[in-house]
Amino acid sequence: EESVKIVRLVKNKEPLGATIRRDEHSGAVVVARIMRGGAADRSGLVHVGDELREVNGIAVLHKRPDEISQILAQSQGSITLKIIPATQE
């Protein structure tokens, strides 16, 4: 059973501070990098390897990473992410 986590981040004009990529094996959209000091890093709630399912209620599974980045870039104020946390080894 996948544990889905709802994360709310507050982002002003600054970038979210995370990059995403598509996992070639599973097809999932995952967090590739977290930039120090960005909104994602400061929240402490988003981690490399987390699978991104939704951004502000928009399912991202069938979107290209550049489309998802665009949605994230255009979002201001509160951003709600639905993520499946990376499995902690």
Rank of each mutant, 00 (worst) to 15 (best):
G27H: 07
S75W: 07
R36H: 11
G27V: 00
R8T: 13
A32H: 14
I79Q: 04
L61F: 12
E67Q: 11
I84V: 12
I58Q: 12
G44M: 03
K82G: 11
A18V: 14
R42E: 06
A28H: 08
K11Y: 13
S3P: 15
I84G: 05
E51N: 03
Q76S: 11
S78T: 14
G49R: 02
P65Q: 12
G27N: 12
P65C: 14
S43E: 03
S43W: 02
V55K: 00
E24W: 10
G27E: 07
E51H: 05
A32S: 13
R42V: 08
H25D: 13
S26W: 01
L72E: 04
R64D: 14
H25P: 10
P85L: 01
I58D: 07
Q70R: 13
E51V: 07
A18E: 03
R21F: 06
L52A: 00
I83P: 04
E67R: 04
I58S: 08
G57T: 02
V31N: 01
R8Y: 07
T19F: 11
T19R: 07
I83L: 12
D23E: 09
S75G: 09
E54S: 08
E24T: 12
S78C: 13
P85G: 06
E51T: 07
T19S: 11
G37R: 03
G57Y: 00
R21C: 14
G49K: 03
I68T: 04
V60N: 03
L72S: 03
I68S: 02
L9D: 09
A59D: 15
Q76T: 14
L16S: 02
S26G: 06
D41Q: 08
R64P: 11
H62G: 14
A18C: 15
G37C: 03
L45Q: 15
L52R: 00
H25F: 10
V4H: 12
T19L: 12
A40E: 01
R64S: 15
R8I: 13
G27W: 01
R36P: 15
L45P: 01
E67G: 01
R21M: 12
A39E: 04
S43A: 06
V55L: 06
A28M: 07
Q88M: 12
A40Q: 00
R22H: 08
D50W: 00
T87N: 15
K82A: 09
Q88E: 10
A18W: 15
I79H: 04
H47S: 08
L52S: 00
L61P: 10
E24P: 14
S69W: 07
E67N: 03
V55G: 01
V30T: 13
D66Y: 11
I34D: 02
